[in-house]
Design a protein around this nucleic acid. Sequence first.
DNA 1: TTGTAAGCGTTATCAG
DNA 2: CTGATAACGCTTACAA
Lengths: 343, 343
Amino acid sequence: MAATMQDVALLAGVSIKTVSNVVNDYKHVSQATRERVQKAIDKLGYEVNVSARNLRTGRTGLIALALPELKLHYFAELADSVISEAEKVGMQVLVEQTNSDRAHETALLQARPRHMVDGVLFSPLGLGQEDIHLFSVDFPMVLLGERVFGSPNDHVTMNNVEAAAAATRHLIERGNRRIALLGSHPGELVGSATLREQGFREAMAAAGLPVDERLVMDTYYWHRHNGATATQQLIEGGVEFDAIFAMNDSLALGALHTLHVNRIEVPDPVSVIGFDDLEDSAYAHPTLSSVDPGREQIARDAVRLLIERIAEGAKPPVERRPVQRILADYRVVERESTAVTRA
Amino acid sequence: MAATMQDVALLAGVSIKTVSNVVNDYKHVSQATRERVQKAIDKLGYEVNVSARNLRTGRTGLIALALPELKLHYFAELADSVISEAEKVGMQVLVEQTNSDRAHETALLQARPRHMVDGVLFSPLGLGQEDIHLFSVDFPMVLLGERVFGSPNDHVTMNNVEAAAAATRHLIERGNRRIALLGSHPGELVGSATLREQGFREAMAAAGLPVDERLVMDTYYWHRHNGATATQQLIEGGVEFDAIFAMNDSLALGALHTLHVNRIEVPDPVSVIGFDDLEDSAYAHPTLSSVDPGREQIARDAVRLLIERIAEGAKPPVERRPVQRILADYRVVERESTAVTRA
DNA sequence: TTGTAAGCGTTATCAG
DNA sequence: CTGATAACGCTTACAA
């Protein structure tokens, strides 16, 4: 049986409260007492019972990170950053995979074992704007991503429209005129796809370039596979294009694959830019230009906001700080796949 | 304030025990009572306080998964599988990143907050055979990977020697004779590198082929970057080679990159095979042959063993089942990068 | 089938 | 600076 505070107190000849004080680094404990207690702790191999502490304090030191799948590189890198940031503030992370499933995501918002985690970092992919009523939850939650806006939660995201426009301009500035778009979700009202497509169209319009709708490829999933397939269709479609803007790097890497298979060189005659700046992109061949979405900053801000909310604790709603929306900084990263300027 | 069982009991006009019975799906509860209690639960929005339950039962329903980094694709895919398997048996997963840091990994074994998780799935990368004494811990732990053998823990791994030999034979059978090896860790006594290199050498010897030591590339880290660099050195070294066996897929993908940059075609004149069978490998160009290490099976077995250990609970050591070591099944996956047979 | 009551190991209050 | 004691909300003998 593991030792308890009582055991330590007995051995050290002090009260249980004093042991607690030592364990929790309470300031007003005499050096002598502290040492005596510490000795007893070491001798018994005592460790605090976290469950008991949790019950008493109503906190667990745990946050949940709910995301679609770790298999998706973007989310793996995000989780990596979130876990690191959480550790800095003494929190541990429970990773939950929703597989972008609506039912799963809904359950998360409704039936969460309320006492298991102090708060939730949620990156929805199945739920959308039409489910906004589900997001009025009574536990601390910070939203990530672009599926839902205007919900009563803190939200960390990036300016997808602007960033996509910047990527598009990057292509336009290098003389590309017939730019294909990979990853469109027609009919969708929210989400990264919609926003990035909007940015693409705005940048094209601003440059006075028409968008050839035959070059806008619908690709529901954004995996390599889909980028590869869509690019093959593009090639077989026979409509000329000189550049591809893929709405994420996985699509772009798939596109590079297909272009290669078809012996079409990159960046000339076809340039490619992606979005997400995955580690892989720097080692693709050719190396892939992309948009760095500020993942580290997103993780840092999200954890910070969540911790703040948790600290607000039982405050009545009126005293809480207003909902915050933070836009992380993006950056266009130029690599080989766009390193050519056309006449 | 959140409702407690007491509140529910009061509203339903039953005792707290009955509420507990309903919540825990105890069999012998009359239909009428169950419904009445359920109504009260719904009305109050009651949810069990997990901390209280944990304190009482001594369990948390949590397992820790300690791995180097989620950024490494292999571990992201492993975590994905582990989380899915854990969910099936009603467990949640706390992901901890060690960054392959010895101090961090040591701390994990020593100062683990004992009551926070029911058990630990540990994939060490910093610690090695010389630290075997650290692995005698008194909480349920299952080891993953190839860093430590013979420790008093259940261990799920794969037959690296055989699998590497199989990959090497795959190259030899296709007429490759001058095979380069990427990712060697000279001087290391344990670990994937050592075992896979052993398998490579055994297969070469069995085929009567000499190993040209100039084609054995030391590469401490196994990232794309290192595979790319090592391959560049290989090319600049001027020693002829007709195939590369990279000890993981990231190295192999880096190798493909460098070969491409140097306009050396794959699989002819140079074939490439990797190890891990990452999702990415199926979409590399050319698609990458690899060794599927049975990741799903590893996750499934590891979770199962851990659950069994947890269930043993307080049994005295003599009554526990002996330590198990499970070898997952591997499989050589042939793709384009080795799809050529030399004269 | 349901109720009573005793803890689980902490932390917090309040007195000393 | 330290001690006694009362919760925290639940599960589980045991009793009815």
